[in-house]
Simulated assay, not measured.
Amino acid sequence: MAQSTDNTAHLDPYEALGLSKTATQAEIKKAYRKLVRTSHPDINPDDAGAEARFVQISAAYDLLKDPDTRARFDAGEIDASGQEKPQRQYYRDYAQNQRSTRDSAGFEGMDPDDIFAQMFRQRSGGAQQGHGFSARGRDVGYTLEVPFLDAARGGSAHISLPGEGQIDLKIPVGLRDGQTLRLRGKGGEGFGGGPRGDAQVKIHIQPHPLFRREDDTILLTLPITLDEAILGAKVTVPTIHGDVALTIPKGSSSGKVLRLRGRGVERKGQAGDQLVELRIVLPKTVDDKLAACIEEWAKTNTENPREAMLKGVPR
């Protein structure tokens, strides 16, 4: 890595910034700010050449940002490496002269437009000082399937990471599909002694045969018999926290939704609800007694549940 830093530091600084020698100081600063945003290794974790480009850009800007140092380079008095980088001494002298201003006013005395770029350069771990590039390792992405109930109620899982073996992963209560869990320091190795990156584990929640979920609400379709729908009943209903009793009102139709408060997903100390949609299921075999009963009942019942629907369609 140190060899790569030395090679990039000696490239022509104008070429590194994509400028000609006639560029103004404002154009140099603008080019640097643009490039540092697109070339920093943290922004390009999948680009193996990003750190080398960042070193090259930083070294070029160090040389050209000060008009006096730039003039010495243009006159041939110093080379692209800066000849022991005398511009750093200039910067220290300048920093001493401006220390009182910075100490008393935070960023005051510093070009506000350059604050963003300066923060990136500080995070580079001293690459512009010519002592070898140092940076945090790249984050590495993984995916993990989690059972529905573990995601809703919380639990634990295991994930195997390269070079780490099996890692225990805590599943927080109310974990959502597509959410990412971060394992700090379990990502790519750092550069030049920098810290390791993180492992980012994207969660895919497995479907459940009974339950569905919308935010913190649990949805369940509950089959009921014809007599339970007509006469009403008290039945046992599964929830993610265990079975509970549910009263079915007399005369319930398919599609009716009943609410079980506090039986949904708990998040931030507050639990959602469970919604139970009723679905009438007829017996597999309709015997003569049931058929005769319905026929007799239909003689006196003329209500048509589709009447309003049919009126709404023009003919």
Rank of each mutant, 00 (worst) to 15 (best):
21 K>M: 02
156 S>H: 12
2 A>P: 07
111 D>V: 10
91 Y>H: 11
264 G>T: 02
167 I>P: 07
49 G>Y: 07
236 T>H: 09
284 K>D: 14
173 V>P: 03
190 G>D: 08
7 N>F: 10
80 A>W: 02
103 D>N: 13
208 H>N: 15
139 D>M: 02
49 G>M: 07
159 I>A: 04
307 E>Y: 07
110 M>I: 10
267 R>H: 10
232 G>E: 05
72 R>A: 13
158 H>N: 15
158 H>V: 05
89 Q>V: 03
2 A>I: 11
253 S>L: 11
166 Q>G: 08
239 T>N: 04
204 H>F: 08
225 T>H: 12
207 P>A: 08
14 Y>V: 01
86 P>M: 03
73 F>N: 09
196 R>C: 01
64 L>R: 10
313 V>R: 12
243 D>G: 02
229 A>T: 04
198 D>I: 07
218 I>K: 06
208 H>Q: 06
275 L>Y: 04
118 Q>N: 13
247 T>H: 05
296 E>V: 04
205 I>W: 04
293 C>S: 14
41 P>V: 01
34 K>N: 08
203 I>D: 09
234 K>F: 03
202 K>N: 11
264 G>V: 01
291 A>E: 14
119 M>T: 12
189 E>Y: 02
62 D>N: 00
204 H>Y: 10
105 A>K: 06
46 D>Q: 11
209 P>F: 00
253 S>R: 14
82 G>R: 05
109 G>W: 09
315 R>V: 05
98 Q>P: 01
266 E>T: 06
75 A>Y: 01
81 S>Y: 13
89 Q>A: 07
35 L>C: 01
9 A>E: 05
89 Q>I: 02
6 D>L: 03
80 A>C: 04
66 D>I: 00
87 Q>C: 01
212 R>P: 03
274 Q>F: 03
82 G>P: 10
10 H>G: 04
285 T>P: 06
4 S>I: 03
131 H>G: 09
238 P>R: 05
296 E>K: 15
269 G>A: 01
77 E>A: 10
284 K>A: 11
130 G>H: 04
278 L>R: 09
153 R>G: 02
260 L>N: 12
188 G>A: 04
225 T>S: 15
40 H>Q: 15
187 G>L: 08
20 S>F: 05
211 F>G: 12
121 R>M: 11
314 P>V: 02
91 Y>M: 12
97 N>S: 13
91 Y>Q: 14
203 I>K: 10
313 V>S: 05
52 A>L: 11
182 R>E: 13
44 N>E: 09
121 R>V: 04
9 A>G: 04
96 Q>I: 07
106 G>Y: 05
314 P>W: 10
153 R>L: 12
266 E>Q: 08
162 P>F: 11
92 R>H: 10
48 A>L: 08
234 K>C: 05
146 V>L: 07
314 P>A: 13
294 I>R: 10
220 L>M: 03
198 D>Q: 11
158 H>S: 15
238 P>L: 02
9 A>W: 00
21 K>H: 04
167 I>V: 15
12 D>I: 02
68 D>Q: 15
111 D>I: 09
54 F>H: 05
117 A>R: 04
211 F>C: 13
39 S>P: 06
286 V>T: 11
